[in-house]
């Protein structure tokens, strides 16, 4: 373990890459930089798999998202803490050593809604994705990968405890 690093965040210079301006509702507040909106693309609400995100069990969420069930595979990898520092911010990193991956889904089995996040992976995009999710309580977290039309999964139990520090 290295002790010397005091958690230095990235150099500020790198951070300055950010941002044209915001569009949409924010446009009233901030004038958008010319053409920023058109370059940025526009996410479409219509493609949202709302039914999959409304399910409250693993089986129902899988059925709604994929219409099939996965086989366990050690080629699907997930890194998540054994004990979450805070259930509201649990870092989860997924990866898959599988060909033609088209979708990766992350489910928190004992959350009010099972499906936490899902990603469409176009050709050329890596299967390694890191994000942060909320866990309502101690739960199994499952990562499902769709590879060449078949489903593979792995899971891990993440413990969520109450913090003591108010």
């Amino acid at each position: 373990m290295k002790h010397a690093d005091q958690s230095k965040p990235r150099s500020p210079r790198r951070r300055e890459v950010l941002a044209g301006a915001a569009a949409g509702t924010a446009a009233m507040l901030i004038p958008p930089v010319a053409s920023a909106a058109s370059d940025a693309g526009a996410a479409q609400a219509s493609i949202y798999p709302a039914r999959a995100f409304a399910q409250t069990s693993e089986a129902a969420a899988l059925q709604a998202m994929f219409g099939k069930t996965p086989a366990h595979s050690s080629e699907v990898r997930m890194s998540a803490p054994d004990i979450a520092e805070n259930g509201a911010v649990v870092p989860v990193a997924v990866d898959a050593n599988l060909p033609d991956v088209t979708t990766i889904a992350i489910m928190a089995i004992d959350n009010p809604f099972t499906m936490a996040a899902a990603y469409k992976i176009p050709a050329g995009t890596s299967t390694a994705i890191s994000s942060r999710i909320k866990l309502a309580k101690t739960t199994k977290v499952v990562t499902v990968v769709e590879s060449a039309g078949k489903l593979y999964s792995t899971s891990k139990q993440v413990k969520v405890t109450l913090g003591g520090c108010g």
């Binding site: 005091q6 803490p81 911010v89 870092p91």
Partner: peptide, 22 residues
């Protein structure tokens, strides 16, 4: 100097999560 890391020199798991957050 590592004391500025707060709790993170006392738990490997918490340290790993913190690194990811940072």
């Amino acid at each position: 100097a590592a004391y500025v890391n707060g709790p993170y020199d006392f738990s490997k798991s918490e340290r790993a999560q913190w690194k990811q957050i940072m």
